[in-house]
């Protein structure tokens, strides 16, 4: 089980308190009606799925309930850092 540091609660808590929220920093379309099929495909389905540093969203469901972002290595599962939603990509 992972230990995840919640940047809002400022403490490391077990993974069962959290829900994974998928890849981070995928911006919602600002003007959806102008989106082409290719752009929708990119937004909805294409994921980077890297082997190594992965930017991802987590939600501290059984804690503060807030979304935050994390950088985790997908080979070792070690968290490099977690940071609040809205902060720049690390």
């Amino acid at each position: 089980m992972l230990l995840i540091h919640c940047p809002y609660c400022e403490e490391a808590r077990p993974e069962v308190e959290f829900v994974y929220g998928g890849e981070a920093h995928i911006a919602r379309p600002l003007d959806p009606s102008t989106y082409s099929d290719e752009q929708w495909e990119e937004f909805l389905y294409i994921r980077s799925n890297p082997r190594g540093r992965h930017h991802e969203r987590w939600r501290h469901t059984h804690g503060c309930g807030r979304f935050f972002n994390a950088v985790r290595d997908t080979v070792t599962d070690v968290f490099e850092t977690t940071y609040k939603a809205g902060e720049a990509r690390k």
């Binding site: 829900v19 994974y20 799925n49 997908t74 080979v75 599962d77």
Partner: peptide, 8 residues
């Protein structure tokens, strides 16, 4: 499956 992506 685990909830997060991983190659571990």
């Amino acid at each position: 499956t685990d909830q997060y992506t991983s190659y571990s």
